[in-house]
C-alpha cells in the first residue's frame, strides 16, 4: 500500500515572529523556516508503517513556491521514497490546500493519506478533514496510535477528556497528534542520499485546481500586552496578594 504524506513549510517553531511594519502579515523574509512539526510526525508514522511491512512506498507532497522543496528534502532524508512539489503562488488556505491535495491523491491513489493535525503558522487544523470530505473518505484526526488491519485502519484519537478509537475503511485520511510518535533525527549520509531522490514538479494550474484564497486578511496585530507583574518575596506575601485581588 502506498502512503501519501503532506508536509508544509512554516516559520520554525523556535522563532519569535514579527509583524510587518504595514500590518499586512508576518515577516518571513530571512526567517528560519522548517517542516511543520506535526507533519514531521506524519512522515515518521509513514516510515514506521513501512518498516512494519504495511506500507510499500511513501510519497511526500508539498504545495507552494519552489523554495518549499527544502521540506521535501527533509522528508526524503527521513526516508520517504519520492516527492511531489505542486507549485502554487500566493497565500494558500485550507480549502485550496485540500483541493490541490485531492488532485495529487487522484494521481497517486494512496491507501493512506497522512497530514499533521494543524500547521503552527495559521493554526487552522482543517486541511485533513477537508481533504477527506472532498475525497469522500473516512478521517482519523488527532491520531495518537495507528494500526492497519486488513482493509481497515484503527485509529486512537485524542479527544477532550480522553481518547476514542475508531476503525476507518481504507483509503483514509489521518492527521497526526503530537503523541503519535517521536520523529527520528536525520543523519548526514541520509541527507546526501535524499539529494538523489526524485522530486516531481507540478503546478496548480496544470492540475486544473482553483486554489484562490476565500478569506481576505484585513490586518494582523500583536495581542495586547499584559501589564508587568510583581515579584513577591514569600509565600505569605503571595497569599495576601491573592486575597487582595479577591481571586481566592
Amino acid at each position: 500500500m502506498k502512503a501519501l504524506v503532506a508536509v508544509k513549510r512554516v516559520v520554525d517553531h523556535n522563532v519569535q515572529v514579527h509583524i510587518k511594519p504595514d500590518g499586512s502579515g508576518v515577516e518571513t523574509a530571512g526567517v528560519k523556516m522548517s517542516i511543520n512539526p506535526f507533519d514531521e510526525i506524519a512522515v515518521e508514522e509513514a516510515l514506521r508503517l513501512k518498516e512494519r511491512g504495511v506500507v510499500t512506498e511513501i510519497v511526500a507532497v508539498t504545495l507552494g513556491e519552489a523554495v518549499a522543496q527544502d521540506v521535501l528534502r527533509h522528508a526524503l532524508a527521513m526516508g520517504a521514497d519520492r516527492a511531489v512539489l505542486v507549485e502554487a503562488h500566493g497565500e494558500l488556505q485550507p480549502l485550496g490546500v485540500a483541493k490541490l491535495l485531492k488532485a495529487v491523491v487522484e494521481r497517486e491513489q494512496p491507501g493512506l493519506i497522512l497530514l499533521g493535525k494543524q500547521a503552527i503558522d495559521d493554526d487552522a487544523g482543517q486541511a485533513g478533514q477537508m481533504l477527506a470530505a472532498l475525497l469522500g473518505a473516512a478521517q482519523g484526526t488527532f491520531a495518537s496510535a495507528v494500526t492497519v488491519q486488513g482493509d481497515e485502519v484503527e485509529v486512537v484519537r485524542e479527544v477532550d477528556g480522553g481518547t476514542e478509537t475508531v476503525a476507518l475503511k481504507l483509503p483514509a485520511v489521518l492527521t497526526a497528534d503530537l503523541r503519535l510518535n517521536e520523529p527520528r533525527f536525520v543523519k548526514l549520509p541520509n541527507l546526501m542520499m535524499a539529494k538523489k531522490k526524485p522530486i516531481e514538479q507540478l503546478t496548480a494550474d496544470g492540475l486544473g485546481v482553483d486554489a484562490a484564497p476565500r478569506l481576505k486578511r484585513l490586518k494582523v496585530a500583536t495581542p495586547p500586552h499584559r501589564a508587568p507583574g510583581v515579584k513577591v518575596n514569600s509565600v505569605a506575601e503571595l497569599a495576601q496578594k491573592l486575597r487582595e485581588a479577591k481571586v481566592v
Binding site: 493554526d123 487544523g125 490586518k219
Partner: peptide
C-alpha cells in the same frame, strides 16, 4: 472556507482569530 478558534466577531463576516500560537491576531473577512 472555515474560521477556527475565533475570539471576536467584529462585523457580520469579519473575525479576529489568533495565529502563530497566539502571538499574532489576524482580522479576516469572509
Amino acid at each position: 472556507a472555515m474560521l477556527a478558534d475565533v475570539i471576536a466577531i467584529t462585523a457580520p463576516a469579519t473575525y479576529v482569530r489568533p495565529v502563530y500560537a497566539g502571538n499574532v491576531l489576524a482580522t479576516v473577512e469572509s
